[in-house]
Simulated assay, not measured.
Amino acid sequence: MKITIVAGARPNFIKIAPIIRAIEEKQQEGANISYRLVHTGQHYDKNLSDTFFEELNIPLPDANLEVKSGSQSVQTAAIMVAFEQELLENPCDLVLVVGDVNSTMACAIVAKKMNIKVAHVEAGIRSGDMTMPEEINRIVTDSITDYFFTTSTTASENLLHHGANPNNIHFVGNVMIDTLYQNLSRIAPPAFWDDFQLSANDYIVLTLHRPANVDEEQSLIRLLEGIDKLAAGKKIIFPIHPRTKAILGQQQLHTENILFTEPQGYLNFMFLVKNSLAVITDSGGISEETTVLGIPCFTMRNNTERPETQTIGTNTLVGTTVENLEKVFGDFIKNGSKKAGIPELWDGKASERIIGILLNTFQQQLK
């Protein structure tokens, strides 16, 4: 069984690492399975890409399509053109895509047009917000996927609602959590830990990347200044994306608590999260990791494609205004964090289940 694994952006690298590990374990057991790793180049900054391959022991990609940045359409088209050539030169039995970035959708489309089976890891998640490019990527990918691997029963139900074959839907757990468990003993403080005089449970981690929050200079400044005020003297560590940094430019910020850093590698970032008082973010994925680590997470969005992080985990949706955040965060400072648990099958074994299912399916087809 020949699998082409696609990765394009930071979250993808975290998700493919345990999948590759599971494949290699099966190879050692003598299973007829091999993989080719294709990096689309969607994230090409070293801190957003190369670092993850090094830290998570991911083999160097067999191919890098080097598409780099562009508008949604330009980037998607470039990935499709390059990936078609990749598959023509290196045929496979299955293309495995993860997550919901442009690379996920683009490569799934190319594979299906070439009559190659597609497996989607993290299938079925939905925010209901069609203004999010990721939501469109999810819907399109799932509409043509052959094998669906879901992180929750809610995601599986979403797929059933949209007409997916129940025999092809597999609730396996969360590969992001596989990576977390596999690397918890390796996380380490970033270089600035001592310089910033940080200590456990005494600082806040901030991440912002969604266009609605960062694309307009003045609204971004107002947002950051508002978050700075609610910190109540706590330091706020903000690993700033190069694109967001460029939007801020040389603008003078009136902040006292926010400490700007470069984007962090996985091991340093997870150390920061694990030892923080709380996380403020507009990311969906971070709320999964904070849930397992038991860290309060405040998500600046009106919706989430990962509802289990809110109903079971530590995540709280706070909307998109600083005023809402101030109220909810103030309640947390006053009353402490809410009771939380870990969702079903978030046990570090999702990747093993995925590869086991794919091998079994392939063997059945050969009979």
Rank of each mutant, 00 (worst) to 15 (best):
N102S: 13
D178C: 06
A188G: 01
I116C: 08
T151Q: 10
L87Q: 14
Q182H: 10
A164I: 08
S156W: 13
E157V: 05
A106G: 06
A108T: 12
N167E: 15
V140Y: 08
N137V: 05
V175N: 13
E89M: 14
E55V: 03
G163K: 10
S103H: 04
V97Y: 02
N90W: 08
G124L: 09
L159N: 02
T131E: 07
L184Q: 12
H162D: 13
T145V: 11
I125R: 05
A119T: 02
N165I: 08
P61V: 12
F149C: 10
N168G: 00
E135A: 05
E135Q: 04
Q182S: 14
V118I: 14
E134C: 05
V97C: 13
F149M: 11
N183H: 07
V74M: 14
A108M: 15
E89N: 15
T76S: 07
D62G: 12
T150W: 12
T153E: 14
I109C: 04
A119H: 04
L56Q: 11
H162M: 08
N168F: 07
I58H: 08
L88R: 13
S69W: 07
Q72L: 12
I177F: 10
F171G: 04
L94G: 08
E84S: 10
V67T: 06
A106F: 07
L94E: 09
A119D: 01
C107V: 00
S185W: 04
Q72R: 12
P189Q: 07
V67Q: 03
I109G: 01
E66P: 03
D142V: 00
M130L: 13
P61R: 15
L94K: 12
P189N: 06
N115H: 15
V97N: 04
T141D: 04
L88I: 14
V121Y: 11
V110Y: 05
L159W: 01
A188V: 08
M80H: 05
K68W: 01
H120W: 06
I116M: 13
I169C: 11
A191M: 08
G128T: 15
V110I: 07
I125T: 06
A164Y: 00
G173Y: 05
G99I: 00
V67W: 07
T151F: 00
D142N: 01
I136K: 01
N183C: 09
S156E: 15
V110Q: 03
D93L: 14
E157Y: 04
A106K: 00
S103E: 06
A77W: 02
N183P: 09
G124M: 09
A82I: 09
V81Y: 09
S71D: 05
D146F: 03
V140G: 02
R138I: 07
N167V: 03
K117V: 01
L87M: 12
V95N: 14
G124V: 05
F171T: 12
I109A: 01
I187L: 15
E86K: 00
P166R: 13
